Amino acid sequence: MTRIAVNGTTLGTESFGPEDAPPVLLVGGTTMLSWPDALCERLAAGGRRVVRYDLRDSGASATGDPDAPDYTLRTLAADAAALAEALGGGPAHLAGIGVGGMVAQVAALDHPDAFTALTLAGTRPVAPGPTDPDLPDHDPATMGRLFSRPMPDWADRAAVAEYAAAGAEILGDDPAAARTRAGRVWDRTPDRTPPVQLANQLGTVFARLDCAPRWRERLPALALPTLVVHGRHDRFFPVGNAEALARELPDARLLVLDTAATALPTSGTDVATIAEAMLTLR
């Protein structure tokens, strides 16, 4: 674990693989633990320097006021470009998951010289909030179950982990993996106050973040080779979002994981499949 000062902030990072290998930069969604250890290790074994990092207001990165962030989506995109430069080794393969995938799209559009390739996992080509008519929205029944639950006691690690496990079951993800990840996120959260815990566990800062202007209409001009990864059973961002995203990009490959839902798999053949597909990009 290393904290790196870039773009007027400090970002928590973790590296896998040799420092002189071609870099792969993994944008947290919102914490770096959205990227499974097994995938990071596979990419490193394939000859890459893998660096995953926490977005602002999460994990080991700088924490301000998650209820009133003093930065925008464009700031987070600039963070990614500045971090790629700080790492050295030339332009990086940039990968983002969920809201991190939105950061990655804008970063690649605004700072194309900083990156050689793009991986977008479990995301869509528009900001959080109202969606475009051709993009399938969150599954209403699933969202009703997910957000009607009472919040846990954020000072109770076990309660937070169980809350995450129950949410994963609703989404069709692995409850055991979600329980473990939530515990690790809780351990890395800088304090136990509800706004900071919510920003770490649920990424709620994005509900308050200025994500304007739209970027979807700019995607056809993005020349980077791109891998779009999505779970076929994703109920949060249904797979039609990935299909639309891949259509917008001129050099995109769509990889649909037939047994996955919202979260990236933490083990099994899907991890190898994702790693192999990412390694074929520059």
Rank of each mutant, 00 (worst) to 15 (best):
G231V: 13
V99E: 06
M143R: 12
T30H: 05
A84N: 04
V196L: 10
S61I: 02
G96I: 04
L39G: 05
V51L: 06
G88P: 05
T193N: 08
L281D: 01
T266K: 03
P112C: 07
D110G: 07
Y53P: 00
P18K: 13
G268V: 09
T266N: 05
L87P: 07
L25M: 12
Y71I: 12
A165R: 03
M278K: 00
A252Q: 02
L245R: 01
R208C: 12
A80H: 02
R218H: 10
R3E: 14
A221Q: 09
V160G: 01
A5D: 11
P150S: 10
A177W: 06
I170R: 01
L254I: 14
C40R: 01
R247C: 02
L281N: 01
G47Y: 07
F115N: 04
D258F: 12
M151N: 10
C211Q: 14
V106P: 04
T259V: 15
A62T: 14
F236E: 02
L224A: 10
S61N: 02
D173K: 02
L279I: 10
V27I: 15
A81S: 13
T193H: 07
L227D: 01
R208D: 12
P133A: 15
A252N: 01
T226G: 02
L120Q: 02
G268Y: 05
A104H: 01
D113S: 14
T273H: 11
L245G: 05
D156T: 13
T262N: 09
P130T: 13
A177D: 14
E19D: 15
G183K: 08
D270Q: 05
A121R: 00
R192A: 08
L43G: 00
T273K: 04
A104I: 06
L255R: 02
M102C: 11
P150V: 12
A275W: 02
A260C: 10
D139E: 13
P152L: 05
A82S: 11
A104K: 00
L25P: 00
A242K: 03
R149C: 12
L264W: 00
T269R: 07
S34M: 12
P36T: 02
R208T: 14
D191A: 11
P112D: 04
G8D: 06
A121S: 09
S15N: 06
R218L: 15
L257D: 01
L118E: 05
P133Y: 09
A158N: 12
P225F: 08
M151G: 12
T13I: 05
A104C: 07
V24M: 08
A207P: 04
G122K: 05
G88A: 10
D37S: 13
A244W: 05
G98Y: 00
R184D: 15
L55W: 02
A92T: 05
L279D: 09
E85S: 14
D156A: 13
R179H: 13
G29V: 12
P136C: 06
E85D: 14
A92D: 09
D270H: 03
P112K: 01
P136G: 01
R49S: 06
Q197V: 08
V50S: 01
P194F: 13
V196P: 00
N200S: 15
P175S: 13
G240P: 05
L33V: 06
Q105L: 06
G8M: 09
T259D: 15
A45T: 10
L254K: 07
G59Y: 03
A114N: 03
T13E: 11
N200H: 11
S61P: 04
A261G: 04
L120F: 08
T2Q: 12
L76Q: 04
P175T: 07
A158Y: 08
